[in-house]
Structures are given as C-alpha cells and as structure tokens.
Design a binder for these strands. Sequence first.
DNA 1: GACGCATAGTGGTCCGACCACCCTGCTGGT
DNA 2: ACCAGCAGGGTGGTCGGACCACTATGCGTC
Lengths: 234, 234
Amino acid sequence: MDDETAPQKGTVTQRAIERIKAMIGEGRLEPGQRLPTERDLAAQLGISRSSMREAIRALTVLGVLEARHGSGIYVTQLEAGDLLETFGVVADLSRGPRLVELLEIRRILESTATALAAARITPDQLAEVEKHLAAMNATDDPEEILAHDLAFHRVIAAAAGNETMAAILEGLSSRTFRARVWRGYQEEGAFTRTRREHAAIHRALAAHDPEAARAAAAAHVGEVEEWLRAQLGP
Amino acid sequence: MDDETAPQKGTVTQRAIERIKAMIGEGRLEPGQRLPTERDLAAQLGISRSSMREAIRALTVLGVLEARHGSGIYVTQLEAGDLLETFGVVADLSRGPRLVELLEIRRILESTATALAAARITPDQLAEVEKHLAAMNATDDPEEILAHDLAFHRVIAAAAGNETMAAILEGLSSRTFRARVWRGYQEEGAFTRTRREHAAIHRALAAHDPEAARAAAAAHVGEVEEWLRAQLGP
DNA sequence: GACGCATAGTGGTCCGACCACCCTGCTGGT
DNA sequence: ACCAGCAGGGTGGTCGGACCACTATGCGTC
C-alpha cells in the first residue's frame, strides 16, 4: 500500500474537500468547533493555501463551514437550515418542466406537513398563522401579500415538527422562485381563490383535522401546479 | 445612485458567485455554454483571478458549473442530478434525530413515487425491477444486496416520471447514508422482512395498483424509520 | 475596577509564476 | 489527396509570497 505518498485522485482541492468532510463525518470535528487556520490546514494536507482556501470556500457555500473574518473558521451547527440553503439555488435556476416537478414535490411535502401540523399545532402557533392570514387579506400590496404568504406556510411547516422538511419547503418557496411563478399566477385574478384556499387550510388546522388539512394544502399547491403546466403546454 | 463603483456587500468572491448565478438566471448563460476564461472573467468583474477561482470552485461543487482542465469552464445542463448531488452531502453529515427526519421525508416521497410508478411503469422497466429483485434474493453478500436494493428503488423512482424527485431520493439513499443505517438494521435479521416488503412492492407495481404500491413502500421505509427511532430513544 | 488602545493573529485579496492538460493546425509521410 | 503524428498556444490547476481588513486579547491607564 502506498497511500502514504500518492492517492492522486482528482484535484488537490477536491481531495481537501473530501478530507475535511471526512473529519466531520467521523466526528473528529464537532459542530461549532473552530478549525486550525488556513495556513495550518494547508500545511497539514501538504497543499498551498490557495487550494485550501478554495476547499474552504466550497464547504462554506455548502453550509458546512463558516468563516469569520479575523476570527477563524468554524463548523456550522449542521442543522437543516444550514445545509439545505443550497436547495434554494436549485429552485432559482430551474425553469420550464423542472418548475412543475418542483411544485409537484412541494405539493407532496406541503400537504403532508400541513396534515402533521393540524395534529400538532399549538394555540400560539395557530395564532401566528391567523396573524399572517389577516395581514394577507388586509393589504393589496403584492410584495406584502407574498411576504405574509411565505410566513403563513413557514409557520405551518415549523408546526409539523420536522425541521428538515421545513428547510426543504423553505427552499422550494424561496423569494425568487415564488416571485417568478406568483407574478403570472396572480395576474389572472387568483387572489380571491388564494384567499379561499388559505382560509380552508386555516379552518382545517383550527379543527385539528389532518385529512382536511392535507386535502386543502394539496389543492392549494395543485392549483398553481395546474396553471403552470398549462402555461408550459401548447 | 452610486451602484457603479461601490456595491460593496460581502466579500468580492461572494459577489462574483451572485453575479454568475444571475447571468445564468437571466438566461445570458445557457446550459452547456462555455464561459470566458478565468482570467477574462476576473478582469470583467474587476477582481483577482484567485477570488474568481474561489467563486468558480463554489459553483462547481454546487453542480452549476463544470471545469474541464485545459478546455474551459462550462455551464452544466442544470438537470436535477447535477444540482441535487449536494443533497447527498446533507445525508452523509446528518446524525441522530435528523436521520429520522430524513427517513420520514424519504418515506413520504418514496411512497408517492412508488404509487406513481405503479400507474406509469412500462413492461421494460418492470422487467428491470424484477431483475434486481431476483439478484437481491440470489446472494448473501451484503454489498451486492445493498447495490441491487439501491438499483431496485432507483428504477422505480425513474418510472415515476419526476426526475427531480428521483434525484432527491437518490441523495437520500446515497451509499454512505444507507450503509450506516442498513448495517445495524440488517444485523437484526431483517433480511426476510425486507424481502417480503420488496415482493409486496413488486406485486403492486405488476398489478398497476397505486394505492397498494403506496402502502407497501410506506411500510417498507417506515420499518427502518421505526427501528432507527427506537435505536435513538432510551 | 472599568475603559481604551496597542498588538498579534486571522481570514480576505491580490499578484506573478509555473505546471498539466486539451485542442488545433501544421507538417510530414503514405 | 488523405491521414497520422507532432508541436504550439491556450486553458484550468497549483504554488508561494505579499499586503490589507478585521477580530480578539491583554496590557496600561484612568
């Protein structure tokens, strides 16, 4: 075995990325822990600081590491939000048929999350849902409506009790993604329908009726899905 | 307005990443297209080649760009597989309660995908499912069983017709993730139960019975989920 | 004891050089 | 005329060093 001198697979930067990921996976680096300096890390792996910086940058955008200027490099808490932020990138760069696929996934997850929320939601959380519902119906500013719409679903996802699912749904509802689809959808006077659907979701949540919540959420997303499918069609 | 000279938000590298992402989002860079050279790009944005390289590396690990040594930098096809490869990183670095959450998501998506597959699967695809099913039952080598198990579900996900969902499920079944959970699960003699569940899924697919397929797949993943939940509990 | 400043250490940026690889076009032969 | 082989230029990959911007620590001062 000569793994001592020449592994030599791929670029050095890629190898550095794998090495650091492995350290975290093996538990040698705990969440929140501070890493050695860039210079030390580069020396340890026998590569230049430039290459090490590229590796660190890559792991930073993946949400695994966090660099604090003047302080050091730290492992993130490795929570769902940290790691799944990149999911929003997928939504932002997707177009055409893939947008429909993403909405289909959102429909599946959102309906399940809403059903779970119906069973588990607390009075406080329900009050917050109602707050955003009221705010959404009290204004005509599309920006404000969109913001409260996002918050409405975010609270519900949080109430479902699965942080990972909430993070994914957050990515699937990222500002640019929603804005792109919402614009055209709302231009067709879908406001009243949207309000009716939101009211139905809220009713199911308040009644703690999971099946009704699932149906209402699925219909809510499904409406947009159908509209988008028609847009892309002939 | 002085956005001409000093946007100055975040690091220059971060800004470069956003700029390139924006170019793709606005359609100024098409999938498969070749970018200017690192040196030219750096000059265009007024930054050093080092910083530009970090930005490119970051977008490379995100699956947005692809660098070919000696040839140039290209935009990927931006397909689900390219962009969601990073989803596997999440699965690899997750532990404890988050593993259960990931399995819960996999149960939801896998059951839906299997139901869709039951309605849409072609004879050819069904034959491939049977091939892996037979191969899985014909050996005792855990490695081989795992490989055919993965392929079994991969074919089903593909038959569901949603490439994005298939890519996510692929990430949720990545080698290291499955290996870590499967090892302990199978050590408890779950082989026969797994085989029975796989047979049930195949039966539902062959009968083109979506509801039966959904139930069988949900039970299949749910078994592992329950086992893992028990492992983590007291 | 609390405040403020000097200082060492860290990540952020830039530069210039060289290497490894790919592609093209030319050259030489058949 | 055609094709194989080679040589060159262009590209990403790596390296080393220098300097800047920011943070945190500790010491001195009040």
